[in-house]
């Protein structure tokens, strides 16, 4: 008598799909591991050591690099500048972007596509090219901004728009706003166009038009889009590097230093790789927290 073969229970279709999906995720997971997780781990690991860019000796310092950052004035200047850029960018980029989107959506009845393209155009230019353009505009000797200011009888800043420590960070904000406001406008415009028209019609019957309709209908309806726009701006504000690196390289005298440029300065100019890693970990922690917040908000919306 032959033994009865033990039959494997048939897997349900659902389990098979789940298994296939896991396989499909593997390439992305592998790429993330090689290019994000391993470098991030090495950065965290390196932050507990003192070593130079070209040195072979890694000296363990525990939390020494973090203590050093805590006591480092320039680190706090850089963090403060990041926060200034974040807050300033929210006001300028999201604020002006919202107003421009509202104007393009309902304020004007002609040339909407033309204005949309013009306002969005700086976004497609690389940050380095934008910085180089503005370096010429802001040049104290040949720049057009000085000429304009003088032509209306005013005096431009004596130390230059980017040379005066008290105004250089604000000029960086203006340049960043010039580049990214168009992107915010397009994002918010998409949100605006999703608002049903009958809400405005009903509001109009109740006498709510213009600013009142914007305040009572547009802004509440845009809440989720605005939250995402603010989070994108916030993350961008902490990640900013290229624009400042070309415009001021963190100067004059660290006045426009941000965490990104400070990490570069410490790592590649002063060759304090361990310390640069520690500052990078702080930036990473901020970025991870903001990324998590963005995901949470996006899912809720």
């Amino acid at each position: 008598m032959k033994p009865t073969p033990i039959l494997k229970p048939r897997q349900s279709v659902g389990v098979q799909i789940v298994q296939n999906q896991s396989v499909l995720v593997l390439p992305a997971l592998l790429i993330c591991t090689v290019f994000i997780f391993i470098p991030a781990f090495l950065t965290i690991f390196g932050s507990f050591y003192a070593f130079g860019l070209t040195s072979q000796n890694w000296e363990p310092v525990g939390f020494g690099n973090y203590v050093r950052a805590w006591n480092d004035d320039v680190f706090w200047i850089a963090l403060r500048n990041n926060i200034i850029i974040v807050l300033g960018s929210i006001v300028l980029q999201v604020g002006i972007g919202t107003v421009l989107a509202a104007v393009l959506d309902r304020g004007i009845s002609f040339g909407q596509t033309f204005f949309r393209v013009i306002i969005f155009m700086p976004m497609v230019i690389s940050a380095v090219a934008v910085a180089l353009i503005w370096l010429i505009i802001l040049d104290p000797n040949i720049g057009i901004l000085n000429a304009i200011v003088k032509s209306v009888g005013l005096s431009p800043p004596k130390l230059g728009w980017l040379g005066d420590p008290s105004i250089s960070i604000w000029m960086v904000l203006v340049v960043a706003a010039w580049q990214y406001t168009g992107f915010m406008m397009v994002l918010i415009l998409a949100g605006l166009q999703a608002i049903p028209n009958h809400l405005y019609e009903a509001a109009a019957l109740d006498g709510a038009r213009g600013f009142r309709a914007f305040w009572s209908i547009t802004l509440p309806s845009l809440r989720n889009v605005l939250v995402v726009a603010i989070l994108i701006t916030t993350i961008g504000g902490f990640k900013v590097f290229d624009l400042i690196f070309v415009l001021t390289n963190g100067g004059p005298a660290n006045a426009t230093q941000v965490l990104g440029t400070y990490i570069y300065l410490q790592a590649f100019t002063l060759t304090n790789m361990g310390y640069a890693n520690a500052v990078a970990v702080v930036l990473l922690a901020i970025a991870v927290f903001l990324g998590w917040l963005q995901l949470k908000v996006s899912r809720r919306s």
Partner: peptide, 16 residues
């Protein structure tokens, strides 16, 4: 020097 040496690039100064 000019008023804003820290905002003047080496290239601009050479061109002057």
């Amino acid at each position: 020097f000019q008023d804003a040496p820290n905002a003047t690039s080496p290239e601009a100064s050479r061109s002057m």
